[in-house]
Design a protein around this nucleic acid. Structure first.
Lengths: 191, 191
DNA sequence: CCGGGCCGATCGAACGCTCGGTGGGCGATT
DNA sequence: AATCGCCCACCGAGCGTTCGATCGGCCCGG
């Protein structure tokens, strides 16, 4: 097995432990247990616990950003684009719940360059959504919410998901996305 | 100075440190420094770090619940009541940003009875909001979002605030509440 | 086909440090 | 003299990290 694949496995294990215990309470020993490796053996794949968190966050966030950019290219109308954005975010969130909780909840744990790089991706991702809202405002005069507020409300609605989502109660990604899209877009556009 | 008041002061210091560093990264020694007391001296006022977090969360959450119950009594129409609920939540959030971040972000840090008691208050608070949405659905047939989802989206929008709120950019409590209420209620009621 | 040397991957053990928590005592107030 | 509020000195546990050693597979000269 290649080193990259092995690292990917380890990141998956790490994400699960961070998801369950939180970054600070999770010890490298916990992750070693989960990955069925020795403590010291893990350090062959990363330099520090902080780098491990960085690798988890970077991988999932880059993937998410790439995914939505691909899907947005196929659509023209900004309202439809925003629907695609919301659907993509929620699908990805639900299908990668552990990593996405780690991404949403452990934002302040990284420092220095690690933090800066994740913050950069975050800004890019945010900008995609804000630009869509700006486009919509241009074409729909009834849309009067300030873009910054509108986008932050949207992310709040969506990212809070990790605190309450239960598949049995709330249905699959499509169902969740449909309901949230309806609630949010009617609020954004109606007047 | 009375013991209660001194404890309240200490809780305020603790909330600030928890707010800045997060519960796990904050050490009792940090709190001692902030409160200008010795480590051992603090333990005269609480039994453990976990109890300290519990006291912070319980105090702020009870206060919030009591506050909204008081204000809701003065209103009859459920839509107006929900507006009051949102305004109260956001005002309180912004005026007690440190404690409210600790309440929102450090939910999983308590265990056993401590956790159960905070979870109990949370359920009560949640139930207030959900009952309002149910009332609204009864009287407004165009409201088709499932109450659970509607309420969780609302809390997501509001509680995410601690990750982005900047007074200079986003205005005061009234401004934030007005925009969020508009966005959310139009989405909930429109059809 | 064999042998030795090398290297990637892994491990056990330990280090230095910080953590939450405590036992005993000191001075001031009552 | 007793209680209250507080602090110094300390403890055991657990942390992230490192180090030296090991083991299996691969390459290469004979």
């Amino acid at each position: 097995m290649k080193k990259d694949e092995r690292l990917a496995q380890i990141l998956k294990h790490a994400a699960r432990v961070f998801y369950e215990k939180g970054y600070d309470r999770a010890s490298i020993r916990d992750i070693a247990r989960e990955a069925e490796m020795s403590l010291a053996g893990l350090y062959y794949y990363f330099r520090s616990k902080e780098e491990l968190l960085y690798l988890v966050q970077k991988q999932v966030f880059s993937d998410l950003l790439e995914s939505v950019r691909g899907k947005l290219q196929a659509v023209d109308d900004p309202v439809e684009k925003l629907k695609v954005f919301i659907h993509n975010h929620l699908s990805y969130f639900i299908q990668n719940l552990e990593e996405m909780k780690v991404l949403s909840h452990e934002y302040e744990c990284l420092e220095g360059e690690y933090h800066e790089e994740i913050a950069g991706i975050r800004r890019e991702y945010y900008a995609v959504a804000e630009n869509l809202v700006r486009e919509i405002r241009k074409r729909h005069p009834t849309c009067d919410v300030r873009p910054r507020m509108a986008v932050l409300c949207l992310f709040g609605m969506m990212n809070w998901l990790y605190t309450w989502y239960r598949p049995a109660k709330d249905g699959g990604p499509d169902s969740v996305a449909e309901q949230m899209t309806a609630l949010y877009l009617r609020g954004l556009l109606a007047g």
